[in-house]
Structure formats: C-alpha cells, structure tokens
Design a protein around this nucleic acid. Structure first.
Lengths: 252, 252
DNA sequence: CGGTGTCCTTCCGTTGGACGGAACCTCGAG
DNA sequence: CTCGAGGTTCCGTCCAACGGAAGGACACCG
C-alpha cells in the first residue's frame, strides 16, 4: 500500500527513492547503482543527485562515488530520538558501562524492529552486531524481547507469526517466545543466549516514563550465568534514572 | 550563486527547503512555521510534508508539530563523517575521557566552521555548548583554531577577516590570532580561554592521516594552568591512535 | 452562543518544470 | 584503434506540481 515502490510518481518520491538507495547500508554508490536501486533512468537520477549534492544531502567520496552528506547527517541529529532520549540516556550509559565493563545498548521499537539508538562498547574495539541506527528483529535480542513484551497486541501477534531463524538457538516457536515475553513482563527483564549471533548473550530491562515503555536498555555479556542479578540491578537503576529524567524533560 | 535561496524553483529544492527549515536547530515546527521558513505556500508545504511523513523523513510529535523523523536519523548515520571517523575515534575518546575525566570532543572543518562530530562529557550531565552536529566558529574554540591553523590559505584569510566577538575574551585581532595559529602549528596544539563561552577553557591537537589534518581532538577543562602538559600528551597519544587507524581504514 | 482568530486540509484548472530517450563525452582495457 | 561501461548534456512533449481559494477544526473571548 504505502510501501508502494511504484515507478517513482511524484518528484518527492523520486528524491526519497534516491536517498533510500543507501538504506541497505551501502555507504557509497555509483550513479548507475543509485539509478538502478531507485528505479530511475540514469538521466533523471543524475539531475536529482546534482541538486542533492549542491545542497549537501549527498557528498562525493574520494573514490568518485556518492555517499550521504554532512548536511543530512547533522539534520538527522535533530531527530527527537536523538535529542531527547539519546542525550538524556548518554550519561547513564556511561556510568553503566564504567561499572560493568560490558557493551551497553539502548533501543526503541520502530514498527516491527528494534532500532538501536545508542551503544557503548569496550575501549578496545569489539566487533558488535548492532551498529547505532541499525534495526534488528524483536524476537532474537534481549532489548527486542523487552520491547515486544510491552508492544501493542497487534504488533506482538504479527511478530510471533514470522519468527525467522538466525542461529541454532533462535527461538522460533511462538508458544515458547510468548511464554518468555510473559516472564519478561513479570520479572521486569529479558535475556537472550546466542539467539541473534553466536557468542553473544544479553540482558535487557524496560525504560519507562509513567507506565509506558519507551525504550529498552540492555547489556551484552559473554555468558549469562556470571553475576546476572547484579547486572539486572545495575540496568534497573540506570533505566529508572533515564525514565525519571525523561519525564522531567517532557514536562518542561 | 548556488546558495541561492531563490523562490523554490525545482521541486527538489522545495523538499530540501522544508528539511532545511529545521537547520536552525528547531526541533519541532508547525506546518505554518515550516511553510514560512521554506518560503512556500501552506498548501504546497502541506503536500510535501505529507509525502515526507509517509516516508518517515518527518515525524509528528506528541505536541502535534513536525520533527525530523527516525528514517532520516538513521540515514544520516550512514554518512562517512559518522561511519569512518566517528566509529574509529569512539574508543579513543572513551579512553581519553576515562583517563582525564574531562569533556572530550572531536571536530572536523566544514567550510568556515567547526563541525562537532562527537563529544563525551562527564557522567553527571554538564551543560556544554557543543551539541554533536552543531557548527561553531573556527576562531573561538581550541579545536577550531587547530583546524584553522591547518586550513588552506583561502579559508584562513576569509575567517581572519571576520572575527566576531562571543565573550570579552574572544580574540578579534587578526594579527594576534594569526600568531596563535603559527604557534599552534609549531607546538602541535592550541588553546582557548573563555573565548566562546564563560568558564570554559579547552585544549586541542590535530588528528593527522599522513601529513593531512583531517580532524581536531579537544578537551574542555575548568582552567588552563592545571596539568596542561599531561593533558596535551594524552590528547597526542589518542590523536595518533586515531590517525593510525584511519590510515588503515582508508587503505582497505 | 455567535464572533473572531489561527491553523490545518482539500479541491481543481492552469501551466511551466520535470521527464527520459537519444546522442555525446571520457576513460581504461584489450 | 576499437570497444564498452559509465557519466553528462540536450530538448520537445506532456502531465504532475502548483497555489489561490474555500472549507473545516479548534480555541479563546466578549
């Protein structure tokens, strides 16, 4: 319906199609690639790209291709997801990271996926799955489960209906996952054990403003047995701090 | 010439004008505001906004206004300024912050301004001037001076020609500033003392790939006398680390 | 309770800008 | 030199974008 990738009708949709060409995560594209992905004749793409370049929405790379530009980058930073949630949460992530030495992450639900809003990993670069700004499935991550557990029924049913497998440990049974979600609601936290990628387990708690869950705060650990109670407690303290500040922020 | 804010001619320019309405830093705008800033009839703005909403470039806020959307936010995260520089530098900023407890910041030069690419402040939220994504003048900040010191002559002359005052301590004499820049080149670091905002002093060093300065790394401190040599040394180590990794990254 | 303001939304006839096929560069490989 | 794969420019046709005007929706006020 609205996700209609119909042959670019309005000009705006063509502009957006050009930008969306980068969505897949490609950082750099040639004009022809761009045209292909946006489903536009090269000539048209060329014109649009020209205007976008002039404005700074796109930049030329050293390799001669096109990439998302600085102007678009800093524009994106004005998004509420960044200005409110992220800036409020940042110091708490810092403290939490300092205390646990674990990779901590903050995510919100965006439709049927978990959108990673911020992440803090060890000082030595550790390979992590979740790039900030990336979207991961709700059923195979700890933050995802928390978000899913408190999502509207419509969303939950939809997600439970299509559980794709990512590792041998991914939960693909709707019944089992539903039970996990129930427990998540009861206990106030959720866990995953190598369900999204091997060697990564995580724990997450909800971030609430009033009694609405607005985000999920998680930590990645090598295994779940080691010191989980302390970790959950730490996450809770941080999440409550974030929630309280957000409430103040919103009231202003 | 190209910065022509002429009455929205091409459709693309109108779309961009709508987005640019947020540039000033406004996080939330009503339709009428939007139309006014973009210099468009309300009816036209309404249609464009509709398309942008559908795509996710804009979002409605709880207050009923419009704000930059999530889709645009994560798109912006694909910009090279983010993916390369920021991700490489992040762990170093972490370490530096942990070691010094100071607010550390990373900036690149964008035309005649310093664009703040990342920032790490104390765990207790400290009011800081530089929001990530914001642009500050080159002549009144430490990172700015570093960037300016290594900028092409054309830029340096242009900036030296219009030194606007921000505090009583802002250097507004081209001669004095030029001398400071010379020293910055010689010593490999620059400082500011309450030149942008009261109570904030900072020190910065260049980040080099090969012999090109690609960014500046700075730290904010309450006063300049206390332990400056150690701070500069720390900054140097981090900046060299970042430079080395960037070089590897680019070579790949 | 009708008046008056502000802001949002929809409609529709006109027209000028967008469209894209085709021709033309540019460059590197064979 | 030829060939091929991008990238760039041109220009006549045509239809989608335009925006004035009119019609809600809501709030505040006398």
């Amino acid at each position: 319906m609205s996700r209609n990738e119909s042959p670019g009708r309005t000009v705006t949709s063509k502009v957006l199609a050009v930008l969306a060409a980068f969505d897949a995560g490609s950082r750099e594209l040639s004009l022809t690639d761009l045209a292909q992905r946006a489903d536009l004749p090269v000539a048209t793409a060329h014109r649009l790209v020209g205007e976008l370049l002039e404005w700074g929405a796109l930049d030329r790379t050293t390799a001669g291709g096109y990439a998302v530009g600085r102007r678009l980058w800093d524009l994106g930073l004005l998004a509420p997801v960044n200005t409110d949630l992220r800036s409020v949460a940042a110091p708490f992530l810092q403290d939490l990271h300092a205390a646990t030495r674990a990779t901590v992450q903050l995510a919100v639900r965006d439709d049927d996926r978990a959108l990673y809003v911020d992440r803090l990993s060890g000082s030595v670069s550790t390979p992590v799955v979740s790039r900030v700004g990336s979207r991961l499935p709700l059923h195979a991550t700890a933050v995802g489960k928390v978000l899913l557990a408190h999502a509207p029924d419509a969303v939950r049913l939809r997600v439970l209906g299509s559980l794709t497998r990512h590792t041998p440990h991914t939960v693909t049974s709707p019944a089992i996952l539903d039970e996990q979600l129930r427990r998540a609601r009861r206990d106030g936290f959720a866990t995953t054990a190598e369900e999204m990628s091997r060697g990564a387990c995580s724990v997450a708690v909800p971030v609430c403003v009033g009694d609405e869950v607005v985000a999920a705060l998680g930590a990645v650990v090598p295994d779940l047995r080691h010191g989980r109670p302390e970790l959950v407690a730490g996450l809770r303290v941080a999440s409550q701090g974030i929630g309280r500040r957000l409430a103040l922020h919103a009231a202003r």
